[in-house]
Design a protein around this nucleic acid. Structure first.
Lengths: 213, 213
DNA sequence: GTTTTATTGCCTTAGTTTTCACAATAATTT
DNA sequence: AAATTATTGTGAAAACTAAGGCAATAAAAC
């Protein structure tokens, strides 16, 4: 099992590039094409593929359909992935309305909050009380949650959702979550992102630090 | 000049940890404390500091105030950093309302869109036509933009803002921006993030892949 | 059907990042 | 004030990641 995060990110990029190429009518693709699309070298593409046992034809490249299928399987995207959003503030609501997930096989099943004024149990994507979280995710088999609560509540809420069985958290709160060993936490900290950008802009960075959240 | 992105991210984390420690009354801090707070080893902390010429006292640790000051200077956070947001869709509006930036010395000066229905020139943070972008950022000296437009317009809009003088872009559009050499692009792709999370959750990741967008 | 050509697959080399180990030394104890 | 202890600062080693180079070989050309 490949545990290199950067490699998995590149797989996602290859998949996106492949979908574009497919929509343009491409049937075959070479490592160099994907390399250009993803901004890496062709050796890197072939090396990544070899890590997952993906093979093509010498001189014939790779079949686009097959490759998309193969990568989707690796990324778990051949089946619909169910997620929930916890925290219906600015970010949480925006993510709830974000339509980009559906095309990628990601389905937001519900939002959760502690503020009764935000509940809306009848909406297409319902907003439910946090008290209902455990029952909901267990009955629906949800393993992934997006955490978009204020920093002061983030630690507490993370414990609640982990105890309910969540195994992966995309954390937008600007704190370092300490999850259980079998829980994967991925953080997006907007201020840290901006600080980074500011640093490299001020540094007059020639070497663009190919940043992918 | 240190060009290691991960190292800069850790600096941001150290700074956040230091601010918390300061608010708790800490005056001195040891590399081990910061290591715990940031989820790294103490050698890593000291090595990072040594890269920037930050020194403490043997056996005495580091002074919290001094360290915050020093790191802020490195990250360019000793002066107010002005940013603009381009694209007033779900994400753009949410970021506009996000109050977390101010505490960190980041000031959102304005939002921009092409839809006249969204203009609001009199708001505290005005929403202006994209046509006014160049004049605005040049008169205000803005170098950083958050790009939150739909993927189809992202490439075009990025060219517009780069030609207006933007040197750093935090890109939320799910495409690979190809900026000029002196423009730093940092991308946050929510779908890629989730795909990553799904992969590592399915892999039953023991080794939490310390993800920081 | 033979030759040429382009591309993969992988082994090797190079580069980067992290960890280890320990001398130097400032604070604390005796 | 001497001895002890805890912590830094950094050079060296290890681990990890990416790039380069080339034999194997499938497709294309002749």
């Amino acid at each position: 099992m490949v545990m290199n995060r950067k490699c998995i990110i590149r797989l996602s990029r290859y998949k996106n590039a492949l979908k574009r190429l497919k929509s343009l009518g491409f049937v075959k693709v070479f490592s160099g094409n994907l390399a250009d699309a993803a901004g890496v070298t062709s050796s890197q593409v072939r090396k990544d593929f070899s890590l997952f046992g993906i093979t093509g034809n010498r001189r014939g490249g790779y079949r686009v359909d097959e490759l998309i299928e193969r990568i989707s399987l690796i990324l778990g995207k051949n089946e619909l992935q169910k997620v929930v959003i916890v925290g219906m503030g600015n970010i949480g609501k925006a993510l709830m309305r974000y339509r980009g997930f559906e095309a990628g096989g990601i389905k937001v099943l519900a939002g959760f909050d502690i503020d009764p004024a935000k509940y809306n149990k009848l909406a297409e994507i319902p907003i439910l009380p946090l008290e209902d979280f455990r029952e909901f995710v267990q009955s629906q088999g949800v393993k992934i949650a997006i955490l978009a609560v204020p920093d002061v509540s983030a630690h507490h809420v993370s414990e609640v959702i982990i105890s309910a069985g969540i195994k992966g958290i995309l954390n937008f709160a600007p704190i370092q979550l300490r999850g259980a060993d079998d829980v994967v936490v991925s953080s997006i900290n907007l201020e840290v992102e901006l600080e980074n950008l500011i640093y490299f802009v001020n540094a007059g960075a020639k070497t663009e630090p190919e940043i992918e959240a």
